[in-house]
Write a protein that binds this DNA or RNA. Structure first.
Lengths: 139, 139
DNA sequence: TTAATGCCTATTAAATTACTAAGGATTTTA
DNA sequence: TAAAATCCTTAGTAATTTAATAGGCATTAA
């Protein structure tokens, strides 16, 4: 029922690249240090993002990564699908009996609705918003 | 990003009990055989459901389990929370920076919206519905 | 009394997660 | 040209979770 660090850190990388969009490449080292993450681990996460065509690499000194499209055109869903696989609450929805199948489909579509309508631009811009007081975190 | 077999089989158990609600106890053996699942494994799943007060056991021959409330009053969310833990797409939402925090909260609330508004009655009754032709299973 | 059930604890194989380790390939700049 | 900074790739691994399996005791209806 959880998105793993793959998807989470992957989003972190993409948000950082979105913030620097148009300013040349950003290195993984920079991103790792800014977010207190293992650079080596991030390398393993960005490989699939590169293979999927979401980022482009520039090798050598002063290299790094850049987004292949503007932040408004890349969604959280794009990133999560690459790193976590298809968005679905269970494997093999189609094999379930109708009642449960419908439940999983509704959950899947609800998650999709959020992920596919949140762009990197949204995420990069609103990074300084406050959370409303008294918001319930665990329910 | 997945609900494990704990939650899935747990729901299966609860739907079976909902179908037999008012007809006396149903044994795990019956449920295991009807769904081709390991009875021993189901025992481990129903223990927390009993501890949480969602089902009541009747021991001895011709015993089994019954729901402690009517199927219309028990939701999929009740079952999933007991077996999978709190409904949240990531651990420690509160520690995330605002943009991601909001994303996780939106996802969580979307999932909650579905799970808490689907009752065992819904699931027990619609078990013979058909899935619309051409429905996309993986997106 | 026996068969059918629930109840409890322990063990385990496989998969996944979240890294760490090591080093090669490429490119910029001093 | 040398050095530094970066990307790129493969391999290994400790911890955790998943999805069971195994064995046996406790309770109760017939």
């Amino acid at each position: 029922m959880k998105i793993s660090t793959k998807g989470r850190y992957g989003l972190t990388i993409m948000i950082e690249l979105a913030k620097k969009h148009g300013e040349g490449p950003t290195s993984l080292k920079t991103i790792a240090q800014a977010n207190d993450l293992s650079e080596h681990y991030l390398e393993q996460l960005i490989a699939p993002l590169r293979n999927a065509g979401l980022v482009k690499s520039i090798r050598g000194a002063y290299g790094g990564y850049i987004l292949t499209d503007i932040p408004a055109k890349i969604t959280a869903g794009d990133v999560i699908r690459v790193l976590e696989g298809p968005i679905t609450p269970v494997e093999g929805i189609e094999d379930e009996e109708p009642a449960k199948r419908e439940l999983w489909i509704r959950i899947r579509d609800a998650i999709k609705g959020v992920l596919d309508n949140t762009t990197l631009e949204d995420l990069a811009n609103h990074s300084n918003d406050e959370t409303p007081e008294g918001y319930m975190f665990y329910i």
